[in-house]
Design a protein around this nucleic acid. Structure first.
Lengths: 154, 154
DNA sequence: GCCATTAATGCAACTAGTTGCAAAAGCAAC
DNA sequence: GTTGCTTTTGCAACTAGTTGCATTAATGGC
């Protein structure tokens, strides 16, 4: 059975990059996790096997893998940036700015916007793994209930 | 004549915050510039008058002013974050990931998306000063012309 | 104008991420 | 296996931004 990591490794090699133990492990950690991983968590994981791996390697490899489209990077705001193997293409995240809850949505919702940007501005938007901020339903309700009780606004 | 800075100062005071010389200067620099300012440029400007002002003050005040809706913050990616007085509400930026050129567009284009997110997911998206990445017209043309000549992809 | 309260400032130490460079490792040709 | 070329790594120094804390200063009540 051909594993996902092997697929990823092949994609690297085909484009003239080298497969190193560090990269192999990074891909395996990312591929083995169905959720997002922060650069730091990934570094911790890599260091369990190769304790001397430097953070610059993790950052450089994440950048490369993102460029190659093997990994995608979601910026959740507040300095929270996470990476995932690019396996569920074209989904986006709605991030509540209050409770940080995130909703995953597919990209159909964005198709019309993308068309308009292309028609009106000749701009091809990267519509992948966008994170939009706002207020989720629960926090809207909370905000209404507490209206006027904040010394500092939300 | 009431200046723009005075308006901003009033907004601060009304909400129980204090007007300090540092804040006054920051607001005047932001208000006097019709373009965006990075935190660092703003710090430089403030230090021309008060050389001992610390960067933490600039960052904290930018955060406060953003929370209060007096200033808005645009993340252009690649670590480029800039601030502007919230004077042209509801515009967005299309940022070319190749040449970094930015196009300013108004928010009408996003109204339909906003409605769909609200209807389908009960999510009220913050649709202000969004920055979307992609390829501008010029870079699309360039990319087509050079297709196949990149050892490393764009 | 003076005093108490509380917010804002300056500082130092910190985190996340980036960069330049020398050393090491991968790969291909012989 | 050795040689040579190129990529990748580890390191150290750096930038941008954040945080805790003691000191300073703006504001309101007298």
């Amino acid at each position: 059975m051909k594993t996902k990591q092997t697929d990823l490794a092949d994609s690297l090699m085909e484009r003239g990059y080298r497969m190193t133990p560090q990269r192999e492990l990074m891909l395996s950690l990312l591929g083995g996790s169905d959720k997002h991983l922060s650069a730091d968590k990934l570094l911790m994981g890599v260091r369990k096997v190769y304790p001397r791996v430097n953070k610059s390697v993790v950052y450089r490899n994440l950048e490369l893998l993102t460029e190659l489209g093997l990994v995608s990077c979601v910026d959740f705001g507040n300095g929270r940036v996470e990476y995932e193997v690019h396996r569920h293409p074209h989904h986006h995240h709605l991030v509540c700015r209050n409770c940080r809850h995130t909703i995953m949505i597919n990209s159909d919702t964005f198709a019309e916007l993308q068309k308009q940007l292309s028609d009106h501005y000749h701009f091809i938007a990267d519509m992948d793994h966008l994170a939009l901020f706002g207020l989720c339903h629960a926090c809207q309700t909370k905000a209404q209930a507490q209206q006027g009780h904040h010394p500092h606004p939300l």
